[in-house]
Nucleic acid binder design. Structure first.
Length: 115
DNA sequence: CGTCTGACGCACG
DNA sequence: GCGTGCGCCAGAC
């Protein structure tokens, strides 16, 4: 397998998995990275999501946060409140840029998804 | 081609 | 429990 192919799959998988996140649920970069086969490439997930903002297909990047449930990527949405507003519109409560009950609404692709 | 950066995560103190 | 440092992979310059 060519490395280029692998790279392409990496980004593609990130987009696909992120889109599969159900409403009202959130996931973490590490969980997605682990699911796609690169547990230590959590940073790449965030980066891929950043590029996903330019993608034509809508990717619920706002449902993806770091392992602490902190909205670290809110700044990339242009306004700092965009990410919070999107999450709140999905019944996700945000307090001080942190998701409440994060552990409760956490969506792990490794467990919820399976293939 | 060498170096830095980045929406992270973990180990260590 | 919190702050700091390092490693990770891939891309941009």
């Amino acid at each position: 397998m060519n490395r280029k192919q692998k790279n392409n799959n990496f980004f593609e998988k990130v987009y696909q998995v992120t889109r599969k996140i159900p409403c009202g649920r959130v996931s973490s970069y590490g969980a997605i990275a682990r699911y796609i086969g690169s547990p230590q490439a959590a940073r790449m997930v965030g980066w891929a999501l950043n590029k996903s903002l330019s993608q034509k297909e809508f990717v619920p990047a706002h449902r993806v946060v770091n392992r602490k449930g902190l909205l670290t990527g809110k700044k990339h949405f242009g306004a700092s409140n965009i990410m919070r507003e999107l999450l709140e519109s999905e019944n996700v409560i945000i307090e001080n840029d942190q998701i409440l009950n994060f552990k409760n609404i956490f969506w792990d692709p490794c467990k919820e998804l399976s293939f």
